[in-house]
Design a protein around this nucleic acid. Sequence first.
DNA 1: CTGAAAGCGCTTACAG
DNA 2: CTGAAAGCGCTTACAG
Lengths: 328, 328
Amino acid sequence: MQKLITAMDVAKHAGVSQSSVSRVYFEGATVSAKTREKVLAAAKELGYRPNELARSLITNRTKIIGIVMKGIQNPFYPQVLKQFTTTFKSLGYSIMFVYTNNDEIQKEDIDILFNYNVAGVIITDASLSLNAIEDFKRYKIPLVLFNRKIASNDFYSVCCNNLEASKEIAQFLVDKGSSDIIYIAGNQNTSTSKEREQGFTEALTKNNIALKRIGSDYTYEGGYKIAQQVINENGIPDSFFVANDIMALGVLDALRESSIAIPEATKVIGFDNIEMASWPTYSLTTWAQPINEMVNQTVSYLMSEIEEYTGFADNIEVNGILIERKTT
Amino acid sequence: MQKLITAMDVAKHAGVSQSSVSRVYFEGATVSAKTREKVLAAAKELGYRPNELARSLITNRTKIIGIVMKGIQNPFYPQVLKQFTTTFKSLGYSIMFVYTNNDEIQKEDIDILFNYNVAGVIITDASLSLNAIEDFKRYKIPLVLFNRKIASNDFYSVCCNNLEASKEIAQFLVDKGSSDIIYIAGNQNTSTSKEREQGFTEALTKNNIALKRIGSDYTYEGGYKIAQQVINENGIPDSFFVANDIMALGVLDALRESSIAIPEATKVIGFDNIEMASWPTYSLTTWAQPINEMVNQTVSYLMSEIEEYTGFADNIEVNGILIERKTT
DNA sequence: CTGAAAGCGCTTACAG
DNA sequence: CTGAAAGCGCTTACAG
């Protein structure tokens, strides 16, 4: 390994003390313009850069945010990741990325983040095992559940207002004249799918319509298969409310393969407003999740908890908006 | 901030020295079974975990790999990210994720990775500014350019064999009877687009066919617009070779909107084999990039350079395979 | 096999 | 404003 240029090397070269070098790179420290100049010149010449690891060790705080993601196959999440990365970068924070297959985050998934002493963690589209919950509490690491909440209410979560959204969606379909409606759910036990189902059911009940529910898994293939099944077995309803866009695209494709006219014979509405929903082939009516605002809420909570840990928990719900396109 | 449990705390609790605690957690160190037991028991009780930052500082090496990604909107790359994360995790490495908008990676994009003293870096779908090149050389950080190469040949790159692939694609189209063929290029200056164009041109020339080339930008919208333009201005060719799948989907959608029968009136072939290419709506013929093998080549190079830095550079080309679907 | 001690590259009271 | 010194939590020769 290459010998690192350290603050000591720069100090010698500049004829100042190592502390002075440190002060030049530490925001808020006071150094005279003259010293700063000498240090920066020496640093440039030697190719010095402050070692972030040493910094983190001595200050006992890192500028790393852990992001744990499951559904990276769903185009919604790369967008989210992009937003987070960009926003945190502007605040001087880096992203440690963890991919997991677990619906319920396990201790093993996050161990490494704790070992690196991350400043905060964001978990998207997954819940937490008891083990993991304990660790977050024990080590007082700020956590935000993004687009998912957990039953215990022990952590801060940021979601779209799913209940309100699905009520509006239901009313929208009813107003369009639908009375025979199928809800295609996402993975069981996910708060998003449950809430969307709940709001939807409530609004339908108000209109004296019984909900038909079919379970699926938040994937394109899941939506595709379920729609085929509906076509073959149940007959086509007036409309489908599909718990996320990527499934809705599967539903659309299956309906088309059976030459079912949309929106004439049946209507389809999704959730998320992923990029593909706006493609002319799909032109999917959907609910836009306000990613920007959700990201901002998450970031500002984390920043304040990093500043001073309180463990404060809340479920934040951000309003979205219906995007009407050609499938309704 | 919470007081950390350190090796010293564990040592006192277990009645051994701090060195012994360290040895229990350091692979390859020798400790008696008895000591190990005492230490682990104490550690468990106290909730000790070795501080990765202190470790990295003293050993002067981290277990962090930086991944710099530009095209996260293209579904090809989330897949790549997933593979890298999974593979590196099994090797004990974590991922620091950097998103950038720059076609040419700038010093600012990677500064933070150097400050964290990452063990290695992967840059996908982007090239390097001179500044950045210098830094990688100067600090001797192993680097792999993934799915992109740069002119200077100074770094290891891992790509699909674009030249061979595009030759085969050309021959495939010619064999299908095409003689009027348009190539829709990706971003200018990207090695992938240039190589695909070159191989394609060579094979067409052999068949006495002149290439028609239109530049675009590797996005869905880009493909869509170009195809509309072709429809309105140039007339439909026998077939399109589109430099990546996401653009090809845009092309398909535009053709369909104009009710152009595929593959009867014109054929379309893409590159990447992203998941959506297999969706029944698209069923796009394409070239499958062997992601797994590309990832493995990247990882094994990085691992050996981390073991012992040589700065060895090479351009690795991995063979892919034509996936024939319904658009040809 | 184990412990005492040096040292990784920083920040930060403490004097001056 | 600046320097000398302690200390963050580890690894690793060095003795024993």
